[in-house]
Design a binder for these strands. Structure first.
Length: 370
DNA sequence: AAGTCGGGGGT
DNA sequence: ACCCCAGACTT
């Protein structure tokens, strides 16, 4: 079925939506300005991230790095540390690369059109539309998860939103209905409606400004829309972390590309399909580390990712011989670090939990938190 | 077109 | 359990 998009209906829809937005929108910090740098920052932080989770990160980043030059100049490891706990760390790496490009190649000037914005690292179809409409009043839609839900329900679109071909349908529909005088407010109104009224489950239709002109409301099809087919498979991984310790120093390793947590720090790692303590002893024997005393073995830490169920164990070993410590570093791409400096490294969430909850007790030092 | 990449909260 | 979140990038 074809969505009704005649001019009168479009005008009524956008007018109701904008009126509702004016009265009901949340007072969020990134809405105070049209500065493309801070809007960009908020949009990246909010990718696949709820406002409630992202807001404190936005405030911290925008106050610490006030300009794109500040951001580009900062060490990536500092950015990653501040990003710690937010997830999808490629966002931070891409932002840093993007900021460098803007400063180095574009004289610090943010691009001001959809076509230019989408060329930047980390800026895709949604974010390009959001920045172009909010900051530069370009009449392009910003199709995110909210927009998929709101549009599909209001217009009765049953195309599978996980298919890339479907994006085109929604983008063209958005292009037709977006008012050219307030494109940024319109896009934000759609998202605000999706986030507060047109919810995935139990939508608050009786409070919706579009109630009288919504296909899903009329046909009682709210639970059927949007159509989404893909299902994800979750793998289990067993991670045995070996914390090698000697006189207040521990060995850490920065994670490389090709796996989760790229750029974050962890420890010597044994991975297998199952948790096996024996492999740890084999590791010790193979490496001639003297006879390390096992100070501690933690209970299991379970950690859920989108595609993976992680089972982590932490084993703290005290290495007796002094020379071996440096040799172990070289052989395993490890770095020696004093325990008091661990707090400065970006670490994955479950490691953060272990470091805060258990390591101070094991090694008998004060909490890592200031 | 499908897979990968985090962490959290709601139901 | 399952779903979704102001998605983008790689294969």
């Amino acid at each position: 079925m074809k969505p009704k998009t005649d001019r009168k209906r479009q005008d009524k829809l956008s007018r109701r939506l904008l009126d509702w937005y004016r009265l009901n929108h949340r007072d969020l910090p990134w809405r105070q300005t049209k500065n493309p740098y801070t809007v960009w920052m908020s949009e990246i932080i909010l990718q696949q991230t709820r406002v409630a989770q992202g807001t404190s990160y936005y405030l911290n980043f925008s106050q610490t790095y006030e300009t794109v030059q500040d951001f580009a100049t900062a060490p990536l490891d500092d950015i990653l540390k501040m990003w710690q706990g937010l997830g999808y760390y490629s966002r931070a790496r891409n932002m840093h690369k993007c900021a460098g490009h803007i400063v180095e190649k574009l004289e610090g000037e943010f691009p001001n059109t959809y076509d230019q914005l989408i060329k930047l690292t980390g800026i895709g179809k949604y974010t390009a539309g959001a920045i172009a409409s909010i900051c530069f009043d370009q009449a392009v839609p910003a199709i995110d998860g909210n927009a998929f839900r709101v549009y599909s329900r209001v217009f009765g679109i049953y195309e599978d939103i996980t298919l890339s071909s479907t994006f085109k349908t929604f983008f063209e529909l958005g292009s037709q209905i977006i008012p050219h005088d307030q494109p940024g407010d319109f896009n934000q109104a759609v998202m605000e409606l999706g986030a507060t009224i047109c919810l995935p489950k139990n939508p608050q239709c009786n409070s919706c400004p579009l109630e009288a002109m919504c296909y899903a409301r009329e046909k009682k099809e709210q639970t059927s829309l949007p159509v989404k087919t893909k299902k994800i498979k979750v793998k289990s991984r067993y991670l045995d972390y070996i914390l090698l310790h000697q006189e207040g120093q521990v060995l850490v390793k920065q994670r490389e590309k090709g796996d989760i947590w790229q750029g974050l720090f962890d420890f010597l790692l044994i991975e297998s399909d199952m948790h096996s303590k024996s492999s740890i002893f084999e590791l010790v024997e193979q490496n001639d580390w003297g006879t390390p005393s096992v100070l501690y073995s933690s209970a299991e830490y379970k950690h859920l990712l989108t595609h993976q169920k992680l089972h982590l164990y932490f084993h703290v070993l005290d290495i007796p011989k002094r020379e071996d410590f440096k040799l172990i570093c070289q052989n395993n791409k490890l770095k020696s670090l004093h325990i008091s400096d661990l707090v400065n490294l970006a670490v994955p969430k479950p490691i953060e939990k272990f470091l805060e909850a258990e390591l101070p007790n094991v090694l008998n030092f004060q909490s890592l938190k200031p």
